[in-house]
C-alpha cells in the first residue's frame, strides 16, 4: 500500500508541475467540442438529423463522446510516458527498489487514471455549458466509466512503452491507433450509420463501450447501442486484461 500511494503521489506531482501540458490537455477536446461540435450542430439542427442521433441534438449526442475521447487520449499518452522514465533513467530507480513491482505499476496506473478522470470531469463541466440536454445525475457514474477506460488504456500504453525501443515507434503508434479508434467508437457519429465492416471494427473497439456507457448516464437509455450491463462488463474485462498485461510486462522488465 505504501508504494502504491507513493506512486500516486509522484504522478500527481509530475502532472501539476507541467502546467502547459495541463492546459494543452484541456484545450484539445475543447477545440473538438466548440469548432467541430458547435459547427455541425447547426447543420444537424433539423428533425431528421435528430432521429439519426437518437432524438437529441448533435451537441448532446457528441458531449459524452468528447468526454470519453479526452480520457482515452490522455490515458494512452500517460501510459506511454513510461518511455520517458526509460529515457531519463527513473525506471532504473524503480526497478532496483525492494518494492513489489506489481504494486508499483498499479500505483502509477491508478495515479494517472485519477488525474485523467479529473481532466475528463473538467471537460464534462464545460460541455454542460454548451449542450442543453445532459443529465447532471449522470456525472458520477460517467466518471466511473471514465476511470475504467483510463486505467485500461494507461495499462495498454504502459505495456507498449515497455516493449518499445524508441520514441519514433511511439509517434507511429499514436498516429495509427488514436484517430481511428476515436472515429470507430461512435463518439462522433452513431455506429448504426456505419457500413457493416466499420461496425465490426467498432464492436471490437473498447472505446465504443465507454462512449456508449457515458452516453447512457449523461443522455439516456434511448440513445445507446448496447445495454449498460454489457458496457460495464466489456469495459471491466478489458481493464482487467490490460492492467494485468502491464503488470506482467513490468514484472519482467530489465534494463539493457
Amino acid at each position: 500500500m505504501r508504494v502504491f500511494i507513493t506512486m500516486i503521489y509522484r504522478q500527481t506531482k509530475r502532472f501539476f508541475r507541467a502546467r502547459s501540458r495541463v492546459m494543452g490537455m484541456i484545450i484539445n477536446p475543447l477545440i473538438w467540442l466548440v469548432f467541430f461540435g458547435l459547427g455541425w450542430s447547426k447543420v444537424f439542427d433539423n428533425p431528421m438529423a435528430r432521429t439519426i442521433f437518437g432524438g437529441v441534438d448533435y451537441l448532446t449526442f457528441l458531449a459524452p463522446g468528447i468526454f470519453a475521447m479526452t480520457i482515452f487520449n490522455q490515458s494512452f499518452v500517460s501510459g506511454v510516458s513510461v518511455i520517458w522514465d526509460k529515457q531519463f533513467g527513473f525506471l532504473k530507480e524503480v526497478l532496483v527498489a525492494p518494492a513489489s513491482r506489481k504494486e508499483t505499476i498499479l500505483g502509477r496506473l491508478t495515479g494517472d487514471s485519477l488525474l485523467t478522470t479529473i481532466q475528463g470531469f473538467i471537460i464534462l463541466l464545460l460541455t454542460f455549458l454548451l449542450a442543453e440536454n445532459l443529465k447532471i445525475s449522470g456525472i458520477i457514474p460517467a466518471l466511473l466509466i471514465g476511470f475504467l477506460l483510463a486505467i485500461a488504456f494507461s495499462g495498454f500504453g504502459t505495456s507498449l512503452a515497455l516493449k518499445m525501443e524508441s520514441m519514433e515507434g511511439f509517434q507511429m503508434i499514436m498516429m495509427v491507433l488514436m484517430l481511428p479508434l476515436t472515429f470507430l467508437s461512435g463518439a462522433i457519429y452513431p455506429i448504426e450509420a456505419m457500413p457493416s465492416w466499420m461496425k465490426a471494427l467498432a464492436y471490437i473497439n473498447p472505446l465504443t463501450y465507454a462512449v456508449d456507457g457515458a452516453r447512457y448516464y449523461l443522455v439516456g437509455a434511448n440513445v445507446t447501442k448496447f445495454s449498460i450491463t454489457i458496457d460495464w462488463a466489456v469495459l471491466s474485462l478489458i481493464a482487467v486484461v490490460l492492467v494485468s498485461l502491464a503488470m506482467v510486462e513490468f514484472e519482467k522488465a530489465t534494463i539493457d
Binding site: R14, R17, K92, E93
Partner: peptide, 13 residues
Amino acid sequence: GIVFQDPSLDREL
C-alpha cells in the same frame, strides 16, 4: 544502494 552511470532522477520533481 546504487548510483547509476546515467542519471536516474525524476527531472520534473
